[in-house]
């Protein structure tokens, strides 16, 4: 995506408000993820580098927190262990999903990559980003055919102790909910405006020309405004 950063006269204030709104929504999710990160470190700290090594059961301590953070924007949340971290499971997700008809449900998957074609999670962007040390990763919008069958965003942060990478704290946000939350602010901007991820995939939009899910590859007369240090941009027509 080609983009120039500038402010255009006329809609500056509304663009600024919309940028702040998007930042505020993602902050809500990242605040929850920092809590999950801290709780994970607390749960595992004592057994790290010691014998016995951490086990799956140690992560059960996260559950009350994970359950509390479900709802509103967050449809699924949890900790994804780096392969080999846990003594009793080479691959593991402590992952919980909201359940409209009752208690949260845990995602259980066949996590043996030798028997499942699907679930080597280490190649997904929500894992590779934090693994490479990126603090704020946003994966998607993408069709989440593994967990929810929904068009989703996955936000993630690294979990580390003294520089050692333990895994990833992540949360799923349905695009339709994120879209509903940012659209009022986008609509205040005169002319077409839309939110894209770092690659140019449209997350929410006020124009049918680039609707949610479309690829924005740059266009004359449009300017991309960064959203702080986040891998998101607000694209608005120059006025």
């Amino acid at each position: 995506m080609t983009s120039t950063v500038s402010t255009s006269a006329g809609s500056t204030a509304q663009v600024g408000t919309a940028v702040a709104r998007v930042a505020q929504l993602t902050d809500q999710v990242y605040a929850a993820l920092r809590e999950v990160r801290d709780a994970t470190v607390t749960a595992l700290r004592d057994s790290l580098g010691a014998a016995p090594a951490p086990v799956v059961a140690d992560l059960a301590a996260l559950r009350p927190l994970l359950w509390r953070r479900l709802g509103a924007l967050i449809a699924g949340i949890g900790f994804i262990a780096a392969p080999g971290l846990l003594a009793d499971a080479p691959w593991y997700l402590e992952w919980w999903q909201e359940n409209p008809s009752g208690r949260p449900v845990q995602l259980l998957r066949d996590l043996d990559p030798s028997s499942s074609a699907f679930y080597d999670y280490t190649h997904w962007d929500w894992y590779t980003g934090p693994q490479a040390g990126v603090e704020h990763t946003i994966c998607g919008p993408y069709v989440d055919y593994l967990c929810t069958d929904e068009y989703s965003l996955t936000l993630s942060v690294p979990v580390t102790v003294s520089g050692a990478f333990l895994g990833v704290a992540a949360a799923d946000v349905f695009v339709r909910r994120f879209e509903a939350a940012v659209l009022p602010a986008l609509r205040e901007i005169p002319g077409p405006a839309f939110l894209t991820n770092a690659e140019g995939r449209v997350v929410a939009s006020t124009t049918a020309r680039w609707i949610t899910g479309a690829a924005y590859r740059g266009a004359p007369g449009f300017t991309a405004h960064p959203i702080r240090d986040l891998p998101l941009s607000l694209v608005a027509a120059d006025t």
Partner: peptide, 19 residues
């Protein structure tokens, strides 16, 4: 092969087509 076909469908960005 099954995974490849699902990935092509997911690249359409349509949850319904992928399902």
């Amino acid at each position: 092969d099954g995974r490849f076909r699902v990935e092509v469908a997911a690249a359409s960005q349509s949850a319904r087509l992928t399902q």
